[in-house]
């Protein structure tokens, strides 16, 4: 097997927490990413799911080196990004692009769509200046925007339209890896389907590697080859997409899958979704042992003291649960 395009080795990203109105002083640490090891193959689509605040966006920003890494290494095609100089990072970013969760905040309000898409092409000299216009038009069409809208500004678009602009911008440099942080949550199902088809097609045709973060598990299942489930800064389950969704092994994944809203109103009202018991854990005061233990239906005394490692549970499947073989 060829070497992975992206390698994370025991990556940790921590944030200090400060309190006090006048004089802020550090009162704690949030371990947003807490020891993640992950290898992503070229051309693979890896889905990343997990509760709000579990560290998905921070992991994405860590890979992009947009936040300082506390410990561990991130390797892109063998290049260590955590130790890279600013100049090396600039080069690496051409291969590594991100689509952000919030298209409103990530687009420059003073640039027209045309300028937004032309800028990276000009900065990185992707095509000669006289071909920029044709390239921008082609990019816009790729994501389903007509060339008539190129003169408009971001505020003149709806949420979904803006996200398509953000996707077109990420595609402009023909990166090798795209990290998409909830790229379709703001889109209606039909446009969502167009974007998913588009991303899948790009992965096939350009051998693009995609890390896909989303809350909609049916969307993640559809597009991903593998799924990684995060809980409080750690990966608790990793495996082939269909298997993980249809036969979840970790109790948290099981709860997540059962919480998927049903489409049929009658069914839904008859069998209310299993809402996870207990509160989501506090990242400031994480539970001891297995972080999921306060909410886990299978909890045993040892879960309160021992942190389960992510281990091979069956071919291609890793699970971090002490009672893996009993449940």
């Amino acid at each position: 097997m060829s070497s992975p395009i992206l390698q994370l080795n025991d990556v940790q990203t921590h944030f200090p927490v400060e309190s006090g109105f006048l004089f802020r002083h550090q009162t704690g640490t949030i371990k947003a990413v807490d020891g993640i090891t992950l290898h992503v193959q070229r051309g693979e689509v890896l889905g990343l799911v997990g509760e709000s605040g579990c560290g998905k966006s921070t992991l994405a920003r860590t890979i992009m080196q947009l936040v300082p890494t506390t410990a561990g290494t991130v390797l892109l095609e063998g290049r260590n990004l955590t130790a890279a100089s600013a100049a090396e990072l600039l080069v690496a970013r051409r291969d590594l692009q991100m689509i952000f969760q919030d298209p409103f905040a990530s687009l420059n309000p003073r640039l027209t769509v045309y300028a937004t898409l032309a800028e990276p092409l000009l900065v990185h000299r992707v095509v000669p200046p006289e071909q920029v216009r044709a390239r921008v038009v082609a990019l816009a069409e790729k994501v389903g925007l007509s060339s008539q809208v190129l003169g408009k500004y971001p505020h003149e678009f709806s949420g979904g339209q803006r996200q398509r602009i953000a996707i077109a911008r990420a595609l402009a440099l023909e990166p090798k890896v795209i990290i998409a942080d909830e790229p379709v949550s703001a889109l209606d199902v039909s446009i969502q389907a167009q974007i998913l088809n588009l991303l899948a097609q790009l992965c096939r045709e350009m051998n693009l590697t995609l890390i896909f973060i989303a809350h909609d598990l049916s969307v993640v299942k559809h597009i991903s080859d593998r799924i990684a489930v995060m809980y409080l800064g750690k990966i608790v389950e990793l495996g082939p997409a269909t298997d993980v969704m249809e036969r979840p092994r970790h109790p948290y994944t099981q709860a997540l899958v059962s919480a998927i809203p049903h489409l049929d109103p009658d069914l839904l009202r008859r069998s209310p979704r299993l809402v996870l018991a207990g509160d989501p854990p506090s990242p400031l005061h994480p539970p001891t042992g297995c972080a999921f233990h306060p909410r886990c239906p299978h909890v045993q005394p040892q879960c309160r003291t021992t942190t389960p490692p992510l281990q091979l549970a069956e071919p291609q499947r890793h699970v971090a649960c002490l009672r893996l073989n009993e449940i």
Binding site: V49, G50, E51, S52, Q101, G159, E182, S185, A186, H215, L217, A255, L256, A259, I260, P261, R273, V275, L276, P280
Partner: peptide, 17 residues
């Protein structure tokens, strides 16, 4: 207006409740 798009299914369920 799209109050739960950025929320995972479990938190979403909690907000809807």
């Amino acid at each position: 207006d799209e109050p739960t798009t950025a929320l995972d299914v479990t938190v979403q369920a909690q907000i809807l409740e």
